[in-house]
Design a protein around this nucleic acid. Sequence first.
DNA 1: GTCTATAATTGGATAGAC
DNA 2: GTCTATCCAATTATAGAC
Lengths: 243, 243
Amino acid sequence: MARPAAAKKKAPAEVRKRGAEHAGRKPTPPARPRVARRPRQAEDKRSVILSAALGLFSRYGLHGTSVDQVAARADVSKSNLLYYFANKEELYVSVLRELLHVWLEPLRGFSAEQDPREAIAGYIRRKLVISRDRPDASRLFCLEMIQGAPLLRDELDRELRTLVERKSEVIAEWVRSGRLRPVAPHHLVFGLWALTQHYADFAVQVQAISGRTLQDAAFFEETVDNVQRLVLDGICAPAAVPA
Amino acid sequence: MARPAAAKKKAPAEVRKRGAEHAGRKPTPPARPRVARRPRQAEDKRSVILSAALGLFSRYGLHGTSVDQVAARADVSKSNLLYYFANKEELYVSVLRELLHVWLEPLRGFSAEQDPREAIAGYIRRKLVISRDRPDASRLFCLEMIQGAPLLRDELDRELRTLVERKSEVIAEWVRSGRLRPVAPHHLVFGLWALTQHYADFAVQVQAISGRTLQDAAFFEETVDNVQRLVLDGICAPAAVPA
DNA sequence: GTCTATAATTGGATAGAC
DNA sequence: GTCTATCCAATTATAGAC
């Protein structure tokens, strides 16, 4: 509560050019440890820490991860880490916030004018890309959900809920106009999420059974294709489809 | 390492009839605390602890839960709990083992002779029943997966994998005989798991958005129906379905 | 079998020099 | 901004009486 960074949010907002004011004072910096510091500093350090934290939190959760571990992975000392983030929980929440953005993004882009097939196929692909490229984001999100989302409850009730509401309206419209079979919009949304995130959250299981990963380009395309066909056409042979 | 229960596994396997060998020695057990001990003891107490543990572990994970909390919830003292389970991890693993059984069960029952529609519809319902009645089982399983299933890896590679292999063969057969569209069996299995477990693991999200729970009978049926139709017939209007 | 200490450790957070 | 040295709280686990 009584520390510079601890105050609230941004700590090392602007970093003065190092050595500018020291120029000439010290003839030779007594054994400067770092070799030619890369320009990225401060603001950048925060993000290094954040991504290290994401990696660990998304696997072991808040309690399963110690700040020591995060510090080690980010290659900073524990106390240095605590200079940038007042405490463990603030770090955790910071990670979550960044995440929510990434996670909600694909949801935004489809409207009633689009062709439902196109729109949904595209959405599935985008979500699977995230499962492939940001599995940690997906996992952490999942962890939060399982625990009852104590820290995201508000966002869940507001942003996500209203976003889904709008989206559902689009789906309902598609159904009304006869372009989709009668599905309950909410359930379709849940289904799309479930089907796509599964490949990130249960990656070990997927790997244990299929022996493949989304990293494998062929497997990725195969997955996109299968999920799209499942959702769009179902699995029953046409003959069995009544009306 | 030097305690009766700590030895390895079963601690109070058989409980000698209390006082049998003491008969007559102590005229009156000095102030016996419990009032008319219900017959269920020992073996039963373990299961009380186990279910308390499941409830907490499935929400907060291994690290997010303290043995104190488990003890409190099971209404025993911490040290008493540690009499039954050598240490926290043993308790955790015990919970997991019970769980795996529950979790794998529905997977066993479908064979090539069945009608695919029936078989798959039935499977979806059974899994959703589990999501409704044993959401904690589903959640804990999910937690383990996310963490890379350090403790289930073996079982995953053996039991589950071979089980899925057999199941996939059945699906492949259905496809060959033209009763199902050409789906990759593995992906179908993943899809079924994802769609059904989602309602347990992401229950808060489902609730935040739809305002309902699987506990709500109407919502449950609605869910079963929607998932079944999604998987079997897809969502695209028949016209759009090519061949 | 159950309880009351208590030992032993981990890990989050702070103080203060540099 | 970064480090070293602590402090302090929370937990796991054990000892030993009853």
